[in-house]
């Protein structure tokens, strides 16, 4: 057996350490070893984006990264978004604008949106598309996701949220 390696990292502000085979992917560490199952696996070859997390503040694919590569890193996953039972404004926007259906890809979208809005509090549609072009959703057709991101940006800027769901009186 290949020697295991110790990995220490912080996820959502909590310090973890684990001893892993070098071949273990980061997402398998998060889900299987640390029990953080909010991050999902959709393709394991870096295309679908379901496994997107923040690594030192940047959105990355956790399925095409080895756990050992994250040694010493600060990670954030979907579990770190809401606090004290309160949805994060991005989550509120996705609920209010119907930015999800089955919800499987959603954690990846949320993390990519989080990174986008950190850098760009008022993105235009082209910028939103550029940020989310690497996140696949098979349910929504993306239109409600675009609305969600616009709404999330507005919420984070402290503006009044848009009228809840499209078509609502």
């Amino acid at each position: 057996m290949t020697a295991k390696r110790d990995v220490s990292l912080t996820v959502n502000g909590v310090a973890y350490s684990a001893s892993v085979e070098p071949r273990m992917t980061l997402v398998d560490l998060l889900r299987g070893e640390l029990g953080l199952t909010g991050t999902h696996v959709g393709c394991e070859h870096g295309v679908c984006g379901a496994c997107t997390i923040l690594l030192n503040g940047q959105a990355v694919r956790s399925c095409i990264m080895l756990a050992v590569q994250a040694d010493g890193a600060e990670l954030m996953t979907v579990e770190g978004l809401s606090e004290d039972g309160q949805l994060h404004p991005i989550q509120q926007a996705f609920v209010g604008q119907r930015g999800l259906q089955c919800g499987f890809c959603t954690p990846g979208f949320l993390m990519s949106v989080y990174e986008l809005l950190q850098h760009n509090p008022a993105p235009g549609d082209d910028e939103i598309k550029e940020a989310l072009g690497g996140e696949l959703c098979r349910c929504t057709g993306y239109q409600s996701i675009l609305r969600s991101v616009r709404d999330a940006a507005a919420r984070l800027r402290g503006e009044v949220p848009a009228a809840a769901t499209e078509g609502e009186a």
Partner: peptide
């Protein structure tokens, strides 16, 4: 067009998908 009761659990990653 009421919001879906399913969604808060889904956006927080708390739904028990098989894996």
């Amino acid at each position: 067009p009421v919001n879906r009761i399913e969604d808060p659990m889904l956006v927080t990653g708390r739904v028990e998908f098989i894996d």
